[in-house]
Structures are given as structure tokens and as C-alpha cells.
């Protein structure tokens, strides 16, 4: 019985609050910006510079 309750609890909590779920959203795949496009050569160079001592 306790096991069943523990499985159902999350569902019960979350279905009670559909509006609050809208406060959050998944991470995007990347954080690209129109003013600095993530081209492959630029990202490759940036990765090297990030580690450059």
C-alpha cells in the first residue's frame, strides 16, 4: 500500500498544479544568438581559446 501511495503521490501533486508548471520550461538545445551565430569554425576556435592558458 505504501509503495502504491509513493508511486501515485507525484502524479497527484503535479496534476493539481497545471498553471504552475507553466512557470518552468525545458532548457533549449543551445543558447544561440542572432548577433553572434554559432558557426562550426567559430565554436571550434572558441573551445580552444576557452582552454588557452
Amino acid at each position: 500500500m505504501r509503495l502504491l501511495a509513493s508511486l501515485l503521490l507525484p502524479l497527484a501533486l503535479l496534476t493539481q498544479e497545471p498553471k504552475k508548471v507553466a512557470l518552468f520550461s525545458p532548457l533549449p538545445g543551445n543558447m544561440a544568438s542572432g548577433h553572434n551565430p554559432m558557426t562550426d569554425p567559430k565554436v571550434k576556435l572558441g573551445r580552444m581559446l576557452y582552454y588557452e592558458p
Partner: peptide
């Protein structure tokens, strides 16, 4: 600009996502 372009790909999706 190059360092920032690289950083724009640093995302860490989790179980919450």
C-alpha cells in the same frame, strides 16, 4: 565572440527537463 559562441552551446539538460 568565439569564446562566447562556444559558451552558447554549454547546456545541461536534466531529469527535470
Amino acid at each position: 565572440q568565439a569564446i562566447a559562441a562556444f559558451e552558447r552551446g554549454l547546456v545541461t539538460p536534466s531529469r527535470f527537463d
